[in-house]
Structure formats: structure tokens, C-alpha cells
Amino acid sequence: MRYILRRLGFFIVTLWAAMTVNFFLPRLMPGDPAMAMIARFHGRLSGQSLHAMEAAFGVNTNQSLIAQYFAYLGDSLTGQFGRSLTFFPDTVSHVVFMALPWTLGLVGVTTVIAFILGTLIGMIGAWTRGGWFDSVLPPLFIILSAFPYFWIGLVAILIFSISLGWLPTGFGYTNGEAVTFTLPFIWDVVRHAFLPAGTIVITSIGGWILTMRNNMIMVLNEDYVRMARAKGLSASRIMFDYAGRNAILPNLSGFGMSLGFVVSGAILVEYVFSYPGVGYMMLQAVLNEDFPLMQTLFLFITLAVLIAILVVDGVTVLLDPRTRRSS
């Protein structure tokens, strides 16, 4: 219980620090969202329109910095993030929650798939080290992970979309179709997600394979593994229950961080495939100087990473009894 309370305290303090930094960074940059919107209209706006935009974007020059800070904390806790400059007059909350399911479905699923496949391949490669499996698959995926995301994506588009015509070149679904939960629409979404998902898996699986293989080789030299072999236990039980369970523990922290960064999306992949996710939206926000949207996205990323770390800490406590003992 004391361990959980310590982690919760760390979570609260870190979240407060991140929100504080997130508040001051946009205010250290020149200009503000209202002025950026005026630049779009080449200054053809009245003073009343300027004040209306400042109120809409949450920029109140009559308040002190401290008052703005506490107003920002209150608005963040209640989900009031202002209006987006890029998608004006939509609110930032509406814009983010429209793109979030696409990123969670694409990057979240592919991150889990890459972790599971990489862990299994690394585990089997360490168990059969020196054999054909260990000599072919791990080096192949590690080499592929060295290629940039966007390069693999462009090659995939060239081969499977342009040359063979099997899959769409980009976007989340066919333009002009209504978003429904029918089987034809779901299949259309899956077809559009196949290439970006394959790109993410290919370029991220190598790291999981390498770390799991190294951890597994170290664990296989431990005394309790030798004892399990001496007792005549089956190879599958030794590999999964004795060696694999302990070798995977260092990888859980990295997996938790990866799950947290799912919210940020794979920016280059979503940009190459014009996928309507958070990563593509973040790039648009930066290019359009959309400070409210950038601020909200950074806050969501921080919150997701902290929650993922907190969950992974809980899973580690369940898997490793040593973490439950007091020093």
C-alpha cells in the first residue's frame, strides 16, 4: 500500500509540473492565437473581433499571469481547452477526440502487436541461439528497424498501392463515405490502415526482439533455470514460466512508455499516409501556430505516459514479488 501511495504522489507532482511547463511555454513564444488568426485575415478585423477571439482562445490580457495560471489549471481539470485556430470555430476538445480514436486504433494496436511478436521472437531466438531461427529472423528485423518510418511507408505505397494496386495510398477511409459502423465501412478502414500499420510494426519490432533476446540469454544462465532443467521440466515450461517471465520484466517499463506515447501518434507515418490521427493533427497545429491545440496535445501525451507508467508499475508488482518487499 505504501508503494502505491508513493507512486500516486509521484504521478500527481509530475502531472502538476508538466501542466505548469505547458502553461508557460506558449506564453514565452511571440504572439498569441488571436494575433495568428488576424494574420490569416491580413489584419482585416475590428477591435471587437479581436477581443472576441481573445475570449474564445482563452487569452485575457487584462488578467495577471498568476490569475491566468490558476484559470488554466481550472479549465484543464474541467476539460475547457479553448478553441482551435486550425479548425476554428471547433473547440480543441472536440478536435482532439475526433482524431484520438484513429490513433489509438492504429498506433495502439500496432504497438501491442510489435511488442508481443518482438518478445516471442526474441525469447525463441535466445532459447535456440546459434540455430537457423536465431540467425535469420532477429537480424532481419533489427536491420529493417534501422530504416526511417517515412522511407518504409513510401516504399510500401510504391509497391502495394501504385504498382500492384492492392491497397489505398492513404487516408483513414475512402473520401466521401459516411462514417458508420457497418461491415463494409469497417473493412474499408482496415484496408486503409494496413500499410501504415505494417510500416509501424516493421520499424519498431526490432528493438523489442533485441532487448528480449539479451534479457533472455542473461536469465538462462541463472541457477534457478539450471535447477529447473535438472528437475526434468519441459522445455516450454522452462522457457515461458521460468526464463521468459523474469526476462520480460525490464521490457515492461519500455512497453509502458510506448503505450503512453501512443497518444502522440506516429507523426511521420500519419503524415506520409495522410492518416487523420493525432500525429497528423499535431503537425498541422505546429505549422499553423495553433497554440491551444498544441498545448492540449502535449498535456494529453504527458497524462497518457504517466498513466501507462503507473499501470506498468502495478503489473510489475504483481509479476515480481521482490518489489512487494520492504527494504
Results as ranks from 00 to 15, higher is better:
M98A: 14
D223Q: 14
S234K: 14
R226V: 07
W132D: 09
G43H: 11
Y69N: 09
G9T: 05
H94V: 10
I12P: 02
V219N: 09
G122W: 09
T20W: 06
R129S: 14
V263S: 01
F115M: 12
L65P: 02
A18G: 04
R7T: 01
T302A: 13
L233I: 12
N22C: 10
T180K: 03
G108K: 03
A266H: 04
M35W: 13
V109D: 07
S84D: 10
Q284K: 13
I267N: 00
F97W: 15
A99F: 05
P168M: 12
G206V: 06
N215G: 12
P30T: 03
P292R: 09
A71L: 11
S163K: 15
P292Y: 05
T110F: 00
I217C: 01
G118C: 10
I152Y: 01
F147V: 15
A230K: 10
I113M: 03
V286H: 02
G47H: 12
I307D: 01
A247I: 01
V272P: 05
V312W: 02
L167Q: 11
D134K: 06
L85M: 05
A18E: 02
S161L: 01
L45G: 05
S145P: 00
G277W: 13
Y280F: 14
S258N: 15
M282V: 01
T323H: 10
S274E: 12
S76Q: 07
A71Y: 07
V59W: 15
R191H: 09
L299H: 07
G256E: 09
M1K: 09
M281H: 00
G82C: 01
W16E: 13
A17K: 10
S204Y: 12
V312Y: 08
G47Q: 15
F81C: 07
G198N: 04
F181V: 11
L144Y: 03
N246G: 07
R322P: 05
V21H: 08
G43V: 10
Y69C: 12
T20R: 08
I217H: 02
I162M: 03
T91K: 04
V315W: 03
D290M: 01
D320C: 04
A230N: 10
